[in-house]
Design a protein around this nucleic acid. Structure first.
Lengths: 145, 145
DNA sequence: TTCGATGCAAACCATTTGCATTAAC
DNA sequence: GTTAATGCAAATGGTTTGCATCGAA
């Protein structure tokens, strides 16, 4: 935990930003809720439990900054709110998501399923792929029962 | 052109909706700009050239309705506006997109690249896939020169 | 002391909604 | 005539911004 924070601190410094207490609180919330896909508002509420004086705008600015540094991915499942998802360290790609249309749960797929597909796309469309976003919509294993 | 409109008219009737002049104008704009991915606002502006009395809310309501009937797909490339994309007739899946991070162009991939991947996901994650969204971000063939 | 970071409130902007009016069958 | 559809304006809600203040090197 601490070492991941240190790593993020380094990334911030490398881009000449500081790890302020507010930013650290925000990062901690993200780390503690790594399995979820929190919205800015949700992050804000959790951060405020620990640092009641923090402002919503600061959370937005911090999340924006972390997205810029590729510490988090900003994702949008079409419900009108941006959600934030910590990247696995060293991951160069966005991971994939399974969105359940019954219960709304969002599960993750860590493995990269698109290796072959990307080769084909780069070849057939002369498109240099930098990143991808893949989401499946359907019924999760829990709701199938 | 006219026959596609008739087909959409049938779809509306099947769900007991009418093809009003406003809805028809909206559909025509979508058909005439099939290669683009227009936002509601952009659709509105183009519709208004032909039917100046139309209201923005009506365009929103029509696009919502068409999305519900799966005539169009509502997509979100992360820029804060929803965009609307006509489905190919008979297509059961959303098609894929190539978003250029240089020039912003959005190209389409019509073929379904995910057949194998979906089989694997359904098997390994016990997830019943109903639809998918796949977007690649990178440099388009035009910008590579 | 200087400049980035913060908190607050106001501004923004895409989208939705309430409601009175209109139009289609 | 009844009910759905429309237009307008106001409301909503997530996000951003202006600005005065604060804090760390």
């Amino acid at each position: 935990m601490q070492e991941r924070i240190d790593r993020i601190k380094d990334q911030l410094h490398a881009a000449s930003y500081k790890l302020t207490p507010q930013r650290e609180s925000t990062v901690r919330v993200l780390l503690e809720n790594e399995a979820d896909h929190l919205s800015a508002e949700e992050v804000f509420l959790k951060v405020r439990e620990r640092s009641p004086e923090i402002g919503l705008a600061t959370v937005y600015r911090t999340l924006e900054l972390l997205a810029e540094l590729k510490v988090v991915d900003k994702i949008n499942f079409g419900d009108g709110v941006a959600r934030f998802d910590l990247r696995k360290e060293g991951a160069e790609h966005f991971h994939h998501h399974l969105v359940c249309i019954e219960c709304g749960a969002v599960d993750e797929i860590e493995e990269d399923l698109l290796g072959e597909v990307e080769k084909k796309v780069e070849r057939d469309y002369q498109f240099k792929i930098m990143d991808h976003r893949l989401t499946f919509h359907g019924i999760c294993h829990r709701c199938q029962k």
